[in-house]
Design a protein around this nucleic acid. Structure first.
Lengths: 355, 355
DNA sequence: GTGAAAGCGCTAACAC
DNA sequence: GTGTTAGCGCTTTCAC
C-alpha cells in the first residue's frame, strides 16, 4: 500500500528552554531553574516564583531531562533486565516495577537480554552509557557475572525473582522452598508417597531452591528416598517439561504424582502424560508453580503455587528507590510468601492405591 | 531480614571521557571524536586513528550518550506505548520491537500507559523531555488524541497492531477483517449458519474491523440477518467475554457457534458456556482470534486465528527506522496476513442439526 | 588532516 | 533572594 500524508515529515518546532522562560519572566535563568525545582523553590521570592511559573505555563515549558542529566550526573532512568520479555512471568513484574518507579519520577528502560552473560554485560554497558541510575536484574544466576560487574562499577542494583547463592545485593523473591513445601504437603495429605519432581535449571536460584525445598519437604514427611525421583530440566519450557517428565515416567512407572518447578514445565508434564495415554489426575497428579495466567483454564485446571509477581516488582522498585536515596542498607532481602491454589490436577489417592 | 554487604554503596569510579582518550593518544578531543564516529572516521589519518582507538580500548572508553544527545538533539531512544504490559498479546510485539531497534543501535523505553488518553499524553511529554527520537504506539483508538499530539509536535511515530480510521501515520497491523473471514468461512464450511459474534471494543480498530469483517463474511455467505447475532464487549477481558456471551446465549438459544474478537473473550465464552452447562464444541462451537499462548492447552483446545505478533513488532521497528532515516514515505501501511488454526473448539454440524 | 572554540540546556557553587 | 559564572561530555563549524 502506498500512501502519503500531509503531516508526515513536518518539522518540529524548537522547544522552549529555561532561558526563554527566564526572559519572559524578566529574571535570570538560575532563578527560573530554582523556581521550577521543587527542592530549591523556597529560595525564591513568592511573587518572582509566581511570575516564572506563569511564564513557564504560558510558554508550555518542558524541562530538558537530557541536559539536566548531563549536568547532575543522574538520569532518573532505571534499567530493567529480563531474560525473556515474552515469558508471562515477567509481565506483571515489569508492570509493578514501571508503575512504582514512574510514580517516583523515574522512567524505565527494559532490556530483553536473553541468558548469555557476556551479552548481558554488553547491554548493561549500553545502559550505563545512558547513565541509568540503577539496574533491576530479573536475570541473575546463582553466581552472576552481571552482579560482579555492577558491584565493580558501583552501579546500584536490585535483584528480583531470582537470588544469588551468596547474597551481595538487595533482593526480592518468593519463598521458593516454602512453595515446594506447600506442594508436597498437599500431595502427601492426599495420600501420595511416590512423588517425582521436574526440577528447573539448577544454575538459577528458583530451580535450585525449589528442588532443595522439594527434597526437604519430602524428607520431613519421612518418605523413603526410593519413593522419590528428581530429574532436572535444562530450561523453563514446555518442551523441556515434556522431555523430563517423559524420562521420569518411563523410569518410574510407580509414581502417582509429579511436582514441577514451574507451570510451563507442568504443562510439559501434561504433554508427556498425553503422549503416554496417562490421565491427570486419575493416573498422575500434577502440581505446578507460579499460577501463571490461564492455567486455571487448561485441562485439567492446574493445582499450583501462586506468587504475587506484581507485588514482587513493586517491592523491587521500592528497594531501588531506597538504594538511590542512600539508605539502601536497611532491608536487604524481602521474601514473599506463596500460597497454594488447589484446582483439579491433583486428587486424593484411595487407601492402598497404586499404579 | 537484616544484612549488610561490604560492597554496598561503593563509590563509582569516574568514567573515562573522550578528553582522557585524546590526551592518552596525544591528539585533540575533536580528533578523538572524529575517529570514534564511524561516519567521520575517514577524515582522520590512519595511523592517528589507530592510536586513538588503542587509547580508547586501553582506557575502556564508553561514549556518554547523554552528552551526545544534548549536543546532537538525537537520543537514539525510542518510546513504546502499550495499554497493558501484562496483556500477553503485547509481549511478543515488544520483543520484536526492542530486538530490531537494538540491532540498529536504538534503546527502547516501554511505557505502560493504560487507556486514558490524557494520561498517555502526559507520559509522552515525559518521553519527549528525554528527547526520544520517535514513538511506537500500540495504544491507538480509531481517532486518537495521542496521534494528534505527535503530529503537532512533529515527533516521528508508528502505529502497531491498531490503526486509526483515517490513516495519518505509518502503520503495521494484521488483516483483521480477513481474520474474521477465515473464522466465518471455517464455521460455514462445518455447516454452521446461526453464528454469534462477541465483538471487541468499537473504539479500537481491532474491535471495529473484526466486527465489520465478521458481518461482511456472513453476508458473503448469504446468511440471513436473523441467523446472526452481534454483541459488543466493552473490553478485551475474560469477564466481559463471559458477560457478553451470556447475553448472546440467553437471547438466542438457537446459535450453534460463536466467533470472539479475541482469545481472551473466547475464554470468557467458555466460562459462559460452563455456567449454562453447555458443552463446547458439542453444543456450541467457538473460534477465537490471536492464538495467544496456552490456548492450545485449554479445554477444549481453541480454534483461533493466528497473527504473528513478533513479526508485527519487527515490522514496526523497521518502519520507525525508515521514518528516522528520512525516507519514511515509502510504505505507509503494512498488513500482515493471519492464518486459521483449527483445534477442537469447532466441530462439524450434522446435516439438519440444531439446538 | 588536525586543532581551536563554541555551545547543546541545564544546575550549582559562589558572589553580592 | 538573585545574578554571575562555570562546566557536565560531546559534536561540529571554522581556521589553518
Amino acid at each position: 500500500m502506498q500512501l502519503r500524508f500531509k503531516h508526515a515529515g513536518r518539522k518540529a518546532a524548537k522547544p522552549t528552554t529555561l532561558k526563554d522562560v527566564a526572559a519572559a519572566a524578566g529574571v535570570h535563568v538560575s532563578t527560573a531553574s530554582r523556581t521550577l525545582n521543587p527542592i530549591t523553590r523556597h529560595l525564591v521570592a513568592g511573587n518572582v516564583a509566581l511570575r516564572v511559573e506563569r511564564a513557564a505555563q504560558k510558554l508550555d515549558y518542558r524541562p530538558d531531562l537530557v541536559a539536566a542529566s548531563l549536568r547532575t550526573g543522574r538520569s532518573r532512568l532505571i534499567g530493567v533486565l529480563v531474560p525473556d520479555i515474552a515469558d508471562p512471568v515477567f509481565s506483571p513484574i515489569l508492570g509493578g516495577i514501571t508503575e512504582s518507579l514512574l510514580a517516583a519520577g523515574y522512567s524505565t528502560v527494559i532490556a530483553d537480554v536473553g541468558s548469555n552473560q557476556d551479552r548481558q554485560i554488553e547491554l548493561i554497558e549500553g545502559l550505563m552509557a545512558r547513565r541509568v541510575d540503577g539496574l533491576v536484574l530479573a536475570t541473575v544466576s546463582r553466581k552472576d557475572a552481571v552482579v560482579d560487574h555492577c558491584l565493580r562499577r558501583g552501579l546500584p542494583a536490585v535483584l528480583v525473582n531470582r537470588t544469588e547463592s551468596q547474597p551481595r545485593l538487595a533482593t526480592v523473591a518468593s519463598d521458593d522452598a516454602g512453595g515446594m513445601k506447600l506442594a508436597v504437603d498437599h500431595l502427601v495429605a492426599l495420600g501420595h508417597r511416590r512423588i517425582g519432581h521436574v526440577a528447573g535449571p539448577q544454575h538459577v536460584s528458583t530451580g535450585f531452591l525449589r528442588r532443595r525445598g522439594f527434597e526437604a519437604a519430602v524428607r520431613k514427611h519421612g518418605l523413603p528416598a526410593a519413593d522419590i525421583a528428581v530429574e532436572v530440566a535444562s530450561a523453563y519450557s514446555r518442551v523441556e517439561g515434556e522431555r523430563v517428565a517423559g524420562a521420569l515416567l518411563d523410569a518410574r512407572g510407580d509414581l502417582t504424582a509429579i511436582v514441577a518447578a514451574n507451570d510451563l514445565l507442568a504443562l510439559g508434564v501434561y504433554d508427556a502424560l498425553h503422549a503416554r495415554k496417562l490421565r491427570c489426575p486419575a493416573d498422575i497428579s500434577v502440581v505446578g508453580h507460579n499460577d501463571m495466567p490461564l492455567v486455571d483454564m487448561v485441562a485439567p485446571p492446574l493445582t499450583t503455587v501462586r506468587i504475587s509477581h506484581r507485588e514482587m516488582g513493586e517491592e523491587a522498585a521500592r528497594m531501588m528507590l531506597e538504594e538511590l536515596a542512600g539508605h539502601g542498607h536497611r532491608e536487604r532481602a524481602v521474601t514473599l510468601t506463596p500460597i497454594l491454589i488447589v484446582r483439579s490436577s491433583s486428587r486424593k489417592l484411595n487407601p492402598g492405591e497404586a499404579r
